[in-house]
Amino acid sequence: MTHLDLLLSVYLDGETTPEESRLVSQHIGECLRCRRRLEALNEARTAVRSLPMLDMPADLVPAAVTETRQRRWHPARWAAAAAAAAAIVTATALALPDPEPLDLGDVTRQVGARAALDLGANSLKFVVPGAER
């Protein structure tokens, strides 16, 4: 009997083709050795998946992301952002829990407002909120 190896990991990830899936499920039904291999691989997989998703350091904020070309990139957005500058959003932008759809006009305006204030800077840097104010 030819034992399985690589396909076992692929199977755990649900990345096997239908034909490969049939092969694996039939084989592990008959072969204790490959069943144990599958369990061992699953332990490694589960271990990595159990690592906690860490938050970005809370005191890190991308304060200035500006290049002159970005001004002409979306001029209307920058104008709106400047008008909304009072509603500056600070540290939490990077620490929000789960991703949301990318069409986020509100977020763009809010966070863009902060960046718009920093048009003089020419590089992205992180600052500690409060340290500069």
């Binding site: 938050d55 990077l94 929000l96 990318l102 763009t108 966070v111």
Partner: peptide, 24 residues
């Protein structure tokens, strides 16, 4: 569905934490 241009702030907000975890 309207498609707004993606901004780096969108990317930072939606993917910053994942990129951080990847790097860490």
């Amino acid at each position: 569905m309207t498609h707004r241009p993606l901004s780096w702030e969108d990317v930072a907000r939606t993917h910053g934490r994942k990129i951080y975890n990847f790097a860490y």
